[in-house]
Structure formats: structure tokens, C-alpha cells
């Protein structure tokens, strides 16, 4: 059977213990697509990523991948299937050096390529190379974010789940991270990116998906939605009607 590297999420319901957060999410991510997942705080964006990566309570629906269903499987299983995850916030080994963190990233990969992969990552992120013997926890937030993206790259994923990589990064570092994501996509990787910086996200993504209260409320090409419309969707869950828009303009002009 030909491995199908489209992620197909069907009516996915998940949450934490008795808490339901995702209320039937349906979403396809074809191979090589760069999808930006957006939505207000608490919409369930991180929960969706965590659920794909097997870190929440699965309550129904499925996640098709590689010809199987990975819904409710363990993180290790999902990782083994070629899906890597960069969580929101700090997620590294703070009392290990950068080099050791990169070694740990390839924990499940036991072949000779690991070392050359690491050299490659150092070339990609020279900032990490100069800090290879620094404890991860002693680096700036931005450097740690770079490290975490690098760790995911070392896992040679086919699909990368990235949760708000730009938080706390300088504009230059954001540039590096996004450039790297685009480059990975060009190599055939699928990317599901959660990003608060909607402008940046719309710029790099092929497709925007908007989540609100655990449901997909909009799915389309970034070019098909304006920033004002996006703001409305975040706030109210729907676009303003013509009537509302004109009234809004009147209010503003008074």
C-alpha cells in the first residue's frame, strides 16, 4: 500500500479528563501543504496539535495518516509515524547543553545519519553552533525557541506541528524560523502552524484555518480573507454583514 501522507482529521473530539475542548474538527492537510491555524485564545488550537500528537484525551473521531488511524495513539507512536511537534512555550531540557538537547531530539533515531543531521542543523542555525556547550536553560527565550525547532527538524518528520514559534523572538529570529519552515515545506514537509501573528502566518501559509470554540469556522486561502474579516471571525465567529459594516463605518465617522 502506498503511504498516504495526507493528514485527514474527521469529526475529532478531544479534551482533558471530563473537559471537552475539540467539538468535532474536520480537516485535511495534503502532503507538502503549509497550513496556518488561527483563532482567539482558548479556541483549542494547542489542544488540536496536542491531540494529533497523542497528548490529550481522545473522545471520538479519527486522524488518518499513513494509511492508519493515529487518533488516541501514544506520542511515541505518532512520532514514529513521522509527525513531530514543537509545543507552545519552553520545551527543552534546561540542564543539558544545546548539543545534548540535539542528541536527545534524535533519541528514537538510531542510525549513522544523526551526526551529519546535527552538523546540518548547526549550519542552518549558526546561533546554536556557537552555543553548543551552553545549558539550554541559560539561553534567551528566542535561542531556546530556535533550539526547539532544530530539535524537531532532527527527527526527520513528514508533518511538523508547530505551536506559536514566534512568541518572544526578535524580528530577525522570527525571520530565521519562518525561512526554515518554508524551506522544510519546499522539501515536501507538511506544516501545521499555530500563530498569533496573523499577518506573518497569512504571508507564509498556503492555507488558513480558523478555529473557534473547538470548531473550524473558516478554511481557505489567505488571499480570500482580509484582516478585518479575520478579526471579526475571531471575535464573533462570523463575518459582519454589509449592513453591520456600513453601520460600523457610520459610528466611526460620527
Amino acid at each position: 500500500m502506498v503511504a498516504d501522507n495526507t493528514l485527514s482529521i474527521r469529526d475529532l473530539r478531544a479534551g482533558y479528563a471530563s473537559l471537552d475542548i475539540l467539538n468535532g474538527v474536520t480537516l485535511d492537510i495534503p502532503q507538502g501543504q503549509f497550513v496556518a491555524l488561527m483563532g482567539p485564545n482558548g479556541a483549542g488550537k494547542s489542544t488540536l496539535l496536542k491531540t494529533i500528537f497523542g497528548m490529550t484525551q481522545h473522545k471520538g473521531g479519527n486522524i488518518g495518516w499513513n494509511g492508519g488511524d493515529i487518533a488516541g495513539k501514544t506520542s511515541r507512536h505518532v512520532l514514529g509515524q513521522g509527525i513531530s511537534y514543537v509545543p507552545q512555550g519552553r520545551c527543552n531540557f534546561p540542564l543539558m547543553t544545546v548539543q545534548e538537547n540535539l542528541e536527545m531530539a534524535a533519541y528514537t533515531i538510531r542510525d549513522a545519519g544523526v551526526k551529519s543531521d546535527r552538523d546540518y542543523v548547526y549550519d542552518l542555525f549558526p546561533a546554536l553552533k556557537t552555543r553548543r556547550s551552553t545549558l539550554a536553560g541559560n539561553m534567551s527565550g528566542g535561542e531556546q525557541q530556535l533550539l526547539e525547532v532544530a530539535m524537531a527538524v532532527l527527527q526527520r518528520p513528514k508533518l511538523l506541528l508547530v505551536d506559536e514559534p514566534s512568541v518572544g523572538l526578535s524580528p530577525a529570529a522570527i525571520g530565521v524560523v519562518f525561512k526554515e519552515l518554508i524551506r522544510l515545506q519546499k522539501e515536501g514537509l507538511s506544516i501545521l502552524l499555530v500563530e498569533q501573528n496573523t499577518r506573518k502566518a497569512m504571508e507564509v501559509a498556503d492555507r488558513a484555518v480558523i478555529l473557534r470554540l473547538g470548531e473550524v469556522i473558516w478554511d481557505g486561502r489567505p488571499a480570500d480573507i482580509s484582516h478585518d474579516e479575520l478579526g471579526d471571525l475571531f471575535l464573533t465567529g462570523r463575518m459582519r454583514t454589509e449592513h453591520e459594516t456600513s453601520r460600523h463605518k457610520e459610528t466611526l465617522s460620527v
Partner: peptide, 12 residues
């Protein structure tokens, strides 16, 4: 040091 990071890199 970090149980969540262990899940991310596949440590059992």
C-alpha cells in the same frame, strides 16, 4: 528535567 519534552522526543 522535563517530562513534556520527553514525550516530544519519544522517550518512554
Amino acid at each position: 528535567q522535563n517530562v513534556e519534552a520527553c514525550a516530544v522526543v519519544g522517550i518512554d
